[in-house]
Design a protein around this nucleic acid. Sequence first.
DNA 1: ACAGCATACCGGTATATACAACATCGGAAT
DNA 2: ATTCCGATGTTGTATATACCGGTATGCTGT
Lengths: 234, 234
Amino acid sequence: MKLPKYRLISNEIKKKISASLWKAGSQIPSETELANHFSASRMTARKAVDELVNSGVLERVASVGTFVKEPAAQSSLLEIRNIADEIRSRGHVHKMTVLSKLMLIPNDAIAFTLSLNSRTVYKIIIVHWENDQPIQLEERYVNAERVPLFLQQDFSKITASEYLNSIAPVTEAEITVEAVMPTKILKHNLQVDDGVPCLKVTRITHSHGQPICYAVLYHPANRFKLTSHLNIVK
Amino acid sequence: MKLPKYRLISNEIKKKISASLWKAGSQIPSETELANHFSASRMTARKAVDELVNSGVLERVASVGTFVKEPAAQSSLLEIRNIADEIRSRGHVHKMTVLSKLMLIPNDAIAFTLSLNSRTVYKIIIVHWENDQPIQLEERYVNAERVPLFLQQDFSKITASEYLNSIAPVTEAEITVEAVMPTKILKHNLQVDDGVPCLKVTRITHSHGQPICYAVLYHPANRFKLTSHLNIVK
DNA sequence: ACAGCATACCGGTATATACAACATCGGAAT
DNA sequence: ATTCCGATGTTGTATATACCGGTATGCTGT
Protein backbone atom coordinates (compact mmCIF):
# COMPACT_ATOMS: atom_id res chain seq x y z
CA MET A 1 0.00 0.00 0.00
CA LYS A 2 2.16 2.84 -1.27
CA LEU A 3 1.22 6.25 -0.03
CA PRO A 4 1.32 9.19 -2.39
CA LYS A 5 3.84 11.87 -1.63
CA TYR A 6 1.32 14.48 -0.55
CA ARG A 7 0.04 12.09 2.06
CA LEU A 8 3.51 11.49 3.41
CA ILE A 9 3.82 15.22 3.80
CA SER A 10 0.46 15.64 5.46
CA ASN A 11 1.29 12.79 7.83
CA GLU A 12 4.55 14.50 8.79
CA ILE A 13 2.66 17.68 9.47
CA LYS A 14 0.15 15.82 11.61
CA LYS A 15 3.01 14.28 13.58
CA LYS A 16 4.53 17.67 14.26
CA ILE A 17 1.19 18.90 15.51
CA SER A 18 0.29 15.93 17.65
CA ALA A 19 3.80 16.04 19.14
CA SER A 20 3.14 19.71 19.94
CA LEU A 21 6.19 20.75 18.00
CA TRP A 22 3.83 22.94 16.08
CA LYS A 23 1.43 24.29 18.67
CA ALA A 24 -2.17 25.37 18.33
CA GLY A 25 -2.44 28.84 16.88
CA SER A 26 1.11 28.98 15.60
CA GLN A 27 2.05 29.48 12.00
CA ILE A 28 3.46 26.57 10.04
CA PRO A 29 6.06 26.97 7.28
CA SER A 30 4.84 28.47 4.05
CA GLU A 31 3.87 26.23 1.17
CA THR A 32 7.11 27.09 -0.59
CA GLU A 33 9.18 26.18 2.47
CA LEU A 34 7.32 22.90 2.89
CA ALA A 35 7.87 22.13 -0.75
CA ASN A 36 11.62 22.73 -0.45
CA HIS A 37 11.88 20.79 2.79
CA PHE A 38 10.19 17.74 1.35
CA SER A 39 11.73 18.14 -2.10
CA ALA A 40 8.32 18.47 -3.67
CA SER A 41 6.69 21.09 -5.81
CA ARG A 42 4.63 23.75 -4.17
CA MET A 43 1.46 22.24 -5.66
CA THR A 44 2.13 18.94 -3.96
CA ALA A 45 2.89 20.56 -0.62
CA ARG A 46 -0.25 22.57 -1.08
CA LYS A 47 -2.29 19.43 -1.65
CA ALA A 48 -1.01 18.04 1.64
CA VAL A 49 -2.06 21.23 3.39
CA ASP A 50 -5.40 21.07 1.57
CA GLU A 51 -6.17 17.77 3.22
CA LEU A 52 -5.47 19.06 6.69
CA VAL A 53 -7.45 22.21 6.08
CA ASN A 54 -10.43 20.16 4.94
CA SER A 55 -10.23 17.93 7.98
CA GLY A 56 -10.04 20.95 10.24
CA VAL A 57 -6.47 20.54 11.50
CA LEU A 58 -5.08 23.60 9.79
CA GLU A 59 -6.45 26.97 8.87
CA ARG A 60 -5.40 29.19 6.02
CA VAL A 61 -5.31 32.98 6.07
CA ALA A 62 -4.86 34.38 2.60
CA SER A 63 -1.73 36.46 2.09
CA VAL A 64 -0.61 35.71 5.63
CA GLY A 65 0.03 32.05 6.26
CA THR A 66 -1.28 28.72 7.47
CA PHE A 67 -1.91 28.07 11.14
CA VAL A 68 -2.59 25.15 13.44
CA LYS A 69 -6.25 25.35 14.33
CA GLU A 70 -7.09 25.77 17.96
CA PRO A 71 -9.26 23.16 19.60
CA ALA A 72 -10.17 20.34 17.19
CA ALA A 73 -13.24 19.86 19.41
CA GLN A 74 -16.15 20.01 17.01
CA SER A 75 -14.80 18.05 14.05
CA SER A 76 -17.21 15.78 12.32
CA LEU A 77 -20.73 16.76 13.09
CA LEU A 78 -22.58 14.81 15.61
CA GLU A 79 -19.15 13.48 16.30
CA ILE A 80 -18.60 10.12 17.80
CA ARG A 81 -18.19 11.64 21.18
CA ASN A 82 -15.61 10.36 23.49
CA ILE A 83 -17.32 10.80 26.80
CA ALA A 84 -14.03 10.92 28.70
CA ASP A 85 -12.62 13.76 26.61
CA GLU A 86 -15.85 15.61 26.85
CA ILE A 87 -15.97 15.45 30.61
CA ARG A 88 -12.36 16.51 30.91
CA SER A 89 -12.92 19.38 28.52
CA ARG A 90 -15.51 20.65 30.97
CA GLY A 91 -12.77 20.64 33.58
CA HIS A 92 -14.39 17.76 35.42
CA VAL A 93 -13.04 14.46 36.64
CA HIS A 94 -13.75 11.36 34.61
CA LYS A 95 -13.78 7.85 36.04
CA MET A 96 -14.89 4.47 34.75
CA THR A 97 -16.28 1.39 36.45
CA VAL A 98 -16.35 -1.89 34.60
CA LEU A 99 -19.46 -3.74 35.68
CA SER A 100 -18.94 -6.78 33.54
CA LYS A 101 -16.65 -8.04 30.85
CA LEU A 102 -17.33 -11.32 29.11
CA MET A 103 -17.38 -13.42 26.00
CA LEU A 104 -20.69 -14.87 24.96
CA ILE A 105 -22.71 -16.42 22.19
CA PRO A 106 -24.48 -13.63 20.36
CA ASN A 107 -28.21 -13.68 19.82
CA ASP A 108 -29.39 -13.45 16.24
CA ALA A 109 -29.87 -9.71 16.24
CA ILE A 110 -26.34 -9.00 17.43
CA ALA A 111 -24.85 -11.61 15.13
CA PHE A 112 -26.68 -10.13 12.18
CA THR A 113 -25.80 -6.55 13.01
CA LEU A 114 -22.13 -7.35 13.45
CA SER A 115 -22.08 -9.83 10.54
CA LEU A 116 -20.58 -12.46 12.83
CA ASN A 117 -19.52 -15.82 11.51
CA SER A 118 -18.14 -17.16 14.74
CA ARG A 119 -20.19 -18.01 17.77
CA THR A 120 -18.62 -15.51 20.11
CA VAL A 121 -18.90 -11.84 20.78
CA TYR A 122 -17.38 -9.66 23.47
CA LYS A 123 -19.66 -7.76 25.78
CA ILE A 124 -18.67 -5.13 28.27
CA ILE A 125 -20.68 -2.93 30.57
CA ILE A 126 -19.10 0.24 31.85
CA VAL A 127 -20.33 3.17 33.90
CA HIS A 128 -18.75 6.55 33.25
CA TRP A 129 -18.64 9.08 36.05
CA GLU A 130 -18.38 12.84 35.94
CA ASN A 131 -17.31 14.31 39.26
CA ASP A 132 -18.60 11.32 41.23
CA GLN A 133 -21.95 11.27 39.46
CA PRO A 134 -22.70 8.52 36.98
CA ILE A 135 -23.35 10.07 33.57
CA GLN A 136 -23.38 7.15 31.16
CA LEU A 137 -23.96 3.44 31.23
CA GLU A 138 -22.39 1.82 28.23
CA GLU A 139 -23.33 -1.63 27.04
CA ARG A 140 -21.07 -2.62 24.23
CA TYR A 141 -20.89 -5.63 21.93
CA VAL A 142 -17.64 -5.92 20.03
CA ASN A 143 -16.79 -7.97 16.97
CA ALA A 144 -14.38 -10.55 18.39
CA GLU A 145 -13.06 -11.50 14.98
CA ARG A 146 -11.98 -8.01 14.15
CA VAL A 147 -10.80 -6.91 17.59
CA PRO A 148 -9.57 -10.11 19.25
CA LEU A 149 -7.66 -8.46 22.10
CA PHE A 150 -10.49 -6.25 23.22
CA LEU A 151 -11.22 -7.92 26.54
CA GLN A 152 -7.59 -7.86 27.59
CA GLN A 153 -7.39 -4.08 27.61
CA ASP A 154 -7.07 -2.12 30.82
CA PHE A 155 -10.14 0.06 30.69
CA SER A 156 -9.00 2.17 33.58
CA LYS A 157 -6.35 3.60 31.28
CA ILE A 158 -8.07 3.76 27.92
CA THR A 159 -11.75 4.03 27.05
CA ALA A 160 -13.35 1.33 24.98
CA SER A 161 -14.03 3.70 22.12
CA GLU A 162 -10.46 5.01 22.19
CA TYR A 163 -9.10 1.48 21.96
CA LEU A 164 -11.49 0.45 19.23
CA ASN A 165 -10.71 3.56 17.26
CA SER A 166 -7.00 2.81 17.43
CA ILE A 167 -7.53 -0.72 16.13
CA ALA A 168 -10.30 -0.07 13.65
CA PRO A 169 -11.02 3.61 13.11
CA VAL A 170 -14.68 4.44 12.73
CA THR A 171 -15.54 5.36 9.18
CA GLU A 172 -19.29 4.96 9.31
CA ALA A 173 -21.89 5.02 12.03
CA GLU A 174 -25.58 4.59 12.49
CA ILE A 175 -27.02 6.34 15.46
CA THR A 176 -30.45 6.11 17.02
CA VAL A 177 -31.65 8.29 19.84
CA GLU A 178 -34.62 7.40 22.01
CA ALA A 179 -36.13 8.42 25.28
CA VAL A 180 -36.86 5.59 27.69
CA MET A 181 -37.77 5.04 31.31
CA PRO A 182 -34.89 3.33 33.10
CA THR A 183 -35.11 -0.25 34.25
CA LYS A 184 -34.49 -0.95 37.89
CA ILE A 185 -30.88 -1.91 37.24
CA LEU A 186 -30.32 1.17 35.14
CA LYS A 187 -31.89 3.40 37.76
CA HIS A 188 -29.56 1.95 40.36
CA ASN A 189 -26.40 2.24 38.32
CA LEU A 190 -27.09 5.73 37.02
CA GLN A 191 -28.54 6.87 40.35
CA VAL A 192 -31.61 8.43 38.82
CA ASP A 193 -34.70 9.39 40.78
CA ASP A 194 -38.19 8.08 40.19
CA GLY A 195 -39.91 9.45 37.14
CA VAL A 196 -36.74 10.65 35.44
CA PRO A 197 -36.33 9.35 31.90
CA CYS A 198 -33.08 8.43 30.17
CA LEU A 199 -31.65 9.15 26.78
CA LYS A 200 -30.81 5.93 25.02
CA VAL A 201 -28.27 6.20 22.23
CA THR A 202 -27.72 3.16 20.05
CA ARG A 203 -24.66 3.31 17.92
CA ILE A 204 -23.46 0.83 15.33
CA THR A 205 -20.00 1.63 14.09
CA HIS A 206 -18.18 0.34 11.04
CA SER A 207 -14.58 0.51 9.96
CA HIS A 208 -14.05 0.46 6.21
CA GLY A 209 -17.30 -1.37 5.66
CA GLN A 210 -16.88 -3.92 8.39
CA PRO A 211 -19.12 -3.72 11.44
CA ILE A 212 -17.08 -3.34 14.60
CA CYS A 213 -19.26 -2.49 17.52
CA TYR A 214 -22.86 -2.29 18.67
CA ALA A 215 -23.15 0.02 21.62
CA VAL A 216 -26.08 1.15 23.72
CA LEU A 217 -25.49 4.22 25.85
CA TYR A 218 -27.86 5.36 28.59
CA HIS A 219 -27.75 8.83 30.08
CA PRO A 220 -29.82 10.31 32.90
CA ALA A 221 -32.01 12.94 31.27
CA ASN A 222 -31.74 15.42 34.12
CA ARG A 223 -27.97 15.56 33.85
CA PHE A 224 -27.36 15.06 30.16
CA LYS A 225 -28.14 16.58 26.79
CA LEU A 226 -26.93 15.64 23.35
CA THR A 227 -25.86 18.65 21.33
CA SER A 228 -24.58 18.99 17.84
CA HIS A 229 -23.62 21.87 15.65
CA LEU A 230 -24.13 21.44 11.92
CA ASN A 231 -23.07 23.26 8.82
CA ILE A 232 -25.25 22.34 5.91
CA VAL A 233 -23.08 21.93 2.87
CA LYS A 234 -25.44 21.64 -0.03
CA MET B 1 -17.31 39.04 -5.39
CA LYS B 2 -15.68 37.34 -8.33
CA LEU B 3 -15.98 33.60 -8.38
CA PRO B 4 -12.99 31.56 -9.40
CA LYS B 5 -13.32 29.57 -12.57
CA TYR B 6 -13.40 26.19 -10.86
CA ARG B 7 -16.39 27.32 -8.86
CA LEU B 8 -18.24 28.41 -11.98
CA ILE B 9 -17.67 24.92 -13.32
CA SER B 10 -18.79 23.17 -10.15
CA ASN B 11 -21.89 25.35 -10.07
CA GLU B 12 -22.71 24.37 -13.63
CA ILE B 13 -22.34 20.73 -12.72
CA LYS B 14 -24.60 21.15 -9.72
CA LYS B 15 -27.20 22.78 -11.97
CA LYS B 16 -27.13 19.83 -14.35
CA ILE B 17 -27.63 17.45 -11.47
CA SER B 18 -30.38 19.35 -9.72
CA ALA B 19 -32.16 19.73 -13.05
CA SER B 20 -31.90 15.95 -13.42
CA LEU B 21 -30.10 16.33 -16.72
CA TRP B 22 -27.39 14.26 -15.12
CA LYS B 23 -29.22 11.62 -13.12
CA ALA B 24 -28.21 9.79 -9.99
CA GLY B 25 -25.87 6.92 -10.73
CA SER B 26 -24.98 8.08 -14.20
CA GLN B 27 -21.52 8.92 -15.36
CA ILE B 28 -20.59 12.53 -15.95
CA PRO B 29 -18.16 13.67 -18.65
CA SER B 30 -14.53 12.91 -18.02
CA GLU B 31 -12.26 15.54 -16.59
CA THR B 32 -10.73 16.09 -20.00
CA GLU B 33 -14.12 16.60 -21.61
CA LEU B 34 -15.19 19.01 -18.87
CA ALA B 35 -11.97 20.94 -19.32
CA ASN B 36 -12.52 21.28 -23.06
CA HIS B 37 -16.16 22.22 -22.65
CA PHE B 38 -15.39 24.98 -20.19
CA SER B 39 -12.16 26.01 -21.91
CA ALA B 40 -10.18 25.26 -18.82
CA SER B 41 -7.25 23.06 -18.07
CA ARG B 42 -7.87 19.56 -16.80
CA MET B 43 -6.49 20.55 -13.38
CA THR B 44 -9.07 23.28 -13.03
CA ALA B 45 -11.93 21.04 -14.10
CA ARG B 46 -10.60 18.48 -11.66
CA LYS B 47 -10.67 20.99 -8.85
CA ALA B 48 -14.33 21.67 -9.55
CA VAL B 49 -15.04 17.96 -9.40
CA ASP B 50 -12.96 17.71 -6.22
CA GLU B 51 -15.32 20.10 -4.49
CA LEU B 52 -18.38 18.11 -5.41
CA VAL B 53 -16.75 14.84 -4.42
CA ASN B 54 -15.87 16.28 -1.02
CA SER B 55 -19.39 17.51 -0.50
CA GLY B 56 -20.81 14.13 -1.44
CA VAL B 57 -22.51 15.08 -4.70
CA LEU B 58 -20.21 13.12 -6.96
CA GLU B 59 -18.26 9.93 -6.60
CA ARG B 60 -15.03 8.99 -8.31
CA VAL B 61 -14.06 5.52 -9.47
CA ALA B 62 -10.40 5.37 -10.36
CA SER B 63 -9.68 4.54 -13.98
CA VAL B 64 -13.37 4.41 -14.75
CA GLY B 65 -15.10 7.70 -14.31
CA THR B 66 -17.01 10.07 -12.09
CA PHE B 67 -20.62 9.44 -11.20
CA VAL B 68 -23.53 11.28 -9.66
CA LYS B 69 -23.90 9.88 -6.20
CA GLU B 70 -27.16 8.28 -5.20
CA PRO B 71 -28.96 10.62 -2.81
CA ALA B 72 -29.03 7.91 -0.17
CA ALA B 73 -25.92 8.96 1.67
CA GLN B 74 -27.60 12.33 2.03
CA SER B 75 -24.66 14.58 2.52
CA SER B 76 -25.58 16.58 5.51
CA LEU B 77 -25.69 14.10 8.32
CA LEU B 78 -28.40 14.37 10.86
CA GLU B 79 -30.29 16.21 8.21
CA ILE B 80 -32.84 18.79 9.08
CA ARG B 81 -35.72 16.41 8.81
CA ASN B 82 -38.95 17.44 7.30
CA ILE B 83 -41.39 15.46 9.34
CA ALA B 84 -44.02 15.56 6.62
CA ASP B 85 -41.74 14.09 3.96
CA GLU B 86 -40.57 11.48 6.37
CA ILE B 87 -44.05 10.33 7.22
CA ARG B 88 -45.03 10.22 3.57
CA SER B 89 -41.89 8.28 2.71
CA ARG B 90 -43.12 5.61 5.11
CA GLY B 91 -46.29 5.49 3.07
CA HIS B 92 -48.31 7.03 5.86
CA VAL B 93 -50.69 9.93 5.96
CA HIS B 94 -49.45 13.24 7.29
CA LYS B 95 -51.69 15.91 8.75
CA MET B 96 -51.12 19.10 10.71
CA THR B 97 -53.12 20.94 13.31
CA VAL B 98 -52.26 24.51 14.15
CA LEU B 99 -52.90 25.00 17.85
CA SER B 100 -51.88 28.62 18.02
CA LYS B 101 -50.39 31.27 15.82
CA LEU B 102 -49.48 34.62 17.24
CA MET B 103 -47.15 37.56 17.41
CA LEU B 104 -45.66 38.38 20.78
CA ILE B 105 -42.95 40.19 22.65
CA PRO B 106 -40.01 37.82 23.02
CA ASN B 107 -38.49 37.10 26.37
CA ASP B 108 -34.82 37.80 26.73
CA ALA B 109 -33.68 34.27 25.93
CA ILE B 110 -35.56 34.16 22.64
CA ALA B 111 -34.55 37.69 21.73
CA PHE B 112 -30.93 36.86 22.39
CA THR B 113 -30.99 33.58 20.52
CA LEU B 114 -32.61 35.11 17.47
CA SER B 115 -30.60 38.36 17.75
CA LEU B 116 -33.83 40.33 17.66
CA ASN B 117 -33.82 44.09 17.56
CA SER B 118 -37.53 44.58 17.35
CA ARG B 119 -39.96 43.77 20.08
CA THR B 120 -41.90 41.13 18.20
CA VAL B 121 -41.47 37.50 17.34
CA TYR B 122 -43.81 35.04 15.68
CA LYS B 123 -44.80 31.94 17.59
CA ILE B 124 -46.67 29.00 16.25
CA ILE B 125 -47.62 25.69 17.78
CA ILE B 126 -48.40 22.81 15.49
CA VAL B 127 -49.18 19.14 16.02
CA HIS B 128 -48.10 16.72 13.29
CA TRP B 129 -50.05 13.52 12.84
CA GLU B 130 -49.01 10.24 11.32
CA ASN B 131 -51.98 8.04 10.45
CA ASP B 132 -54.24 9.75 12.99
CA GLN B 133 -51.69 9.52 15.78
CA PRO B 134 -49.92 12.66 16.95
CA ILE B 135 -46.20 12.24 16.41
CA GLN B 136 -44.73 15.70 16.97
CA LEU B 137 -45.63 18.85 18.78
CA GLU B 138 -43.73 21.75 17.32
CA GLU B 139 -43.28 25.01 19.14
CA ARG B 140 -41.60 27.46 16.88
CA TYR B 141 -40.34 31.01 17.30
CA VAL B 142 -39.56 32.77 14.04
CA ASN B 143 -37.52 35.89 13.41
CA ALA B 144 -40.21 38.36 12.30
CA GLU B 145 -37.70 40.74 10.77
CA ARG B 146 -36.29 38.16 8.45
CA VAL B 147 -39.50 36.29 7.62
CA PRO B 148 -42.22 38.94 7.86
CA LEU B 149 -44.93 36.99 6.05
CA PHE B 150 -44.58 33.86 8.13
CA LEU B 151 -47.89 34.03 9.96
CA GLN B 152 -49.88 34.58 6.77
CA GLN B 153 -48.94 31.22 5.33
CA ASP B 154 -51.44 28.43 4.98
CA PHE B 155 -49.89 25.71 7.05
CA SER B 156 -52.30 23.12 5.83
CA LYS B 157 -50.54 23.30 2.47
CA ILE B 158 -46.92 23.86 3.40
CA THR B 159 -45.03 22.94 6.53
CA ALA B 160 -43.38 25.66 8.54
CA SER B 161 -39.92 24.30 7.84
CA GLU B 162 -40.64 24.04 4.13
CA TYR B 163 -41.74 27.66 3.99
CA LEU B 164 -38.83 28.89 6.06
CA ASN B 165 -36.40 26.96 3.94
CA SER B 166 -37.78 28.55 0.79
CA ILE B 167 -37.37 32.05 2.21
CA ALA B 168 -34.14 31.58 4.12
CA PRO B 169 -32.44 28.26 3.45
CA VAL B 170 -30.86 26.67 6.48
CA THR B 171 -27.09 26.84 6.33
CA GLU B 172 -26.29 26.19 9.94
CA ALA B 173 -28.05 24.54 12.84
CA GLU B 174 -27.54 23.81 16.47
CA ILE B 175 -29.42 20.83 17.76
CA THR B 176 -29.95 19.60 21.28
CA VAL B 177 -31.64 16.36 22.17
CA GLU B 178 -33.06 15.63 25.60
CA ALA B 179 -35.39 13.19 27.26
CA VAL B 180 -38.16 14.75 29.31
CA MET B 181 -41.39 13.80 30.98
CA PRO B 182 -44.31 15.49 29.24
CA THR B 183 -46.27 18.28 30.86
CA LYS B 184 -49.99 17.82 31.17
CA ILE B 185 -50.67 19.85 28.05
CA LEU B 186 -48.06 17.93 26.11
CA LYS B 187 -49.46 14.61 27.28
CA HIS B 188 -52.89 15.64 26.11
CA ASN B 189 -51.82 16.90 22.72
CA LEU B 190 -49.50 14.00 21.95
CA GLN B 191 -51.85 11.46 23.52
CA VAL B 192 -49.16 9.79 25.54
CA ASP B 193 -49.85 7.46 28.43
CA ASP B 194 -48.69 7.93 31.98
CA GLY B 195 -45.02 7.28 32.54
CA VAL B 196 -44.01 7.60 28.90
CA PRO B 197 -41.20 10.08 28.33
CA CYS B 198 -40.77 12.33 25.33
CA LEU B 199 -37.84 13.21 23.14
CA LYS B 200 -37.29 16.95 23.13
CA VAL B 201 -35.35 18.30 20.19
CA THR B 202 -34.32 21.94 20.31
CA ARG B 203 -33.17 23.34 17.04
CA ILE B 204 -31.78 26.78 16.29
CA THR B 205 -31.38 27.38 12.60
CA HIS B 206 -29.42 30.05 10.79
CA SER B 207 -29.38 31.22 7.22
CA HIS B 208 -26.06 32.66 6.06
CA GLY B 209 -25.14 33.63 9.59
CA GLN B 210 -28.48 35.13 10.54
CA PRO B 211 -30.62 33.33 13.10
CA ILE B 212 -34.01 32.43 11.66
CA CYS B 213 -35.87 30.11 13.93
CA TYR B 214 -35.87 28.61 17.38
CA ALA B 215 -37.89 25.42 17.42
CA VAL B 216 -38.70 22.93 20.13
CA LEU B 217 -40.03 19.59 18.94
CA TYR B 218 -41.58 17.02 21.25
CA HIS B 219 -42.08 13.40 20.26
CA PRO B 220 -43.70 10.58 22.19
CA ALA B 221 -40.90 8.16 23.02
CA ASN B 222 -42.94 5.05 22.45
CA ARG B 223 -43.70 6.00 18.86
CA PHE B 224 -40.59 7.87 17.80
CA LYS B 225 -36.86 7.45 17.39
CA LEU B 226 -34.28 9.80 15.97
CA THR B 227 -31.90 8.09 13.59
CA SER B 228 -28.93 9.30 11.67
CA HIS B 229 -26.43 7.67 9.38
CA LEU B 230 -22.96 9.18 9.35
CA ASN B 231 -19.93 8.88 7.15
CA ILE B 232 -16.91 10.06 9.03
CA VAL B 233 -14.80 12.15 6.74
CA LYS B 234 -11.52 12.54 8.55
C1' DA C 1 8.11 61.03 15.25
C1' DC C 2 5.25 59.94 11.74
C1' DA C 3 3.08 59.27 7.28
C1' DG C 4 3.50 57.21 3.04
C1' DC C 5 5.49 54.25 -0.15
C1' DA C 6 8.21 50.25 -2.03
C1' DT C 7 9.00 45.61 -1.60
C1' DA C 8 9.05 40.91 -0.16
C1' DC C 9 6.16 37.32 1.09
C1' DC C 10 2.08 34.36 1.14
C1' DG C 11 -1.82 31.98 -0.19
C1' DG C 12 -5.31 31.54 -4.39
C1' DT C 13 -5.96 30.50 -8.98
C1' DA C 14 -4.87 28.76 -13.53
C1' DT C 15 -2.34 26.31 -17.18
C1' DA C 16 0.44 22.87 -19.59
C1' DT C 17 2.50 18.71 -19.26
C1' DA C 18 3.93 14.08 -18.03
C1' DC C 19 3.61 9.62 -16.36
C1' DA C 20 1.44 5.91 -13.43
C1' DA C 21 -2.12 2.69 -12.32
C1' DC C 22 -6.06 0.50 -13.46
C1' DA C 23 -10.38 -0.82 -16.08
C1' DT C 24 -12.62 -1.88 -20.19
C1' DC C 25 -13.14 -3.42 -24.63
C1' DG C 26 -11.98 -5.48 -28.97
C1' DG C 27 -9.37 -8.34 -31.69
C1' DA C 28 -5.97 -11.96 -32.31
C1' DA C 29 -4.17 -16.37 -31.08
C1' DT C 30 -5.02 -20.77 -29.30
C1' DA D 1 -15.46 -20.93 -27.61
C1' DT D 2 -12.03 -19.29 -24.64
C1' DT D 3 -7.94 -17.06 -23.37
C1' DC D 4 -4.63 -13.62 -23.83
C1' DC D 5 -2.80 -9.23 -25.16
C1' DG D 6 -2.68 -4.71 -26.32
C1' DA D 7 -4.89 -0.22 -27.33
C1' DT D 8 -7.42 3.20 -25.28
C1' DG D 9 -9.77 5.94 -21.88
C1' DT D 10 -10.01 7.59 -17.15
C1' DT D 11 -8.62 8.97 -12.76
C1' DG D 12 -4.42 9.75 -9.62
C1' DT D 13 -0.14 11.90 -8.80
C1' DA D 14 3.55 15.13 -9.54
C1' DT D 15 6.10 19.09 -11.37
C1' DA D 16 7.20 23.73 -13.17
C1' DT D 17 5.54 28.01 -13.96
C1' DA D 18 2.97 32.31 -13.96
C1' DC D 19 0.30 35.86 -12.24
C1' DC D 20 -3.07 38.02 -8.88
C1' DG D 21 -4.32 40.35 -4.76
C1' DG D 22 -3.73 40.73 -0.24
C1' DT D 23 -0.62 41.51 4.16
C1' DA D 24 3.33 42.76 6.70
C1' DT D 25 7.52 45.00 7.10
C1' DG D 26 10.89 48.18 6.65
C1' DC D 27 12.72 52.18 4.58
C1' DT D 28 12.46 56.98 3.20
C1' DG D 29 11.29 61.58 3.16
C1' DT D 30 9.11 65.04 5.61
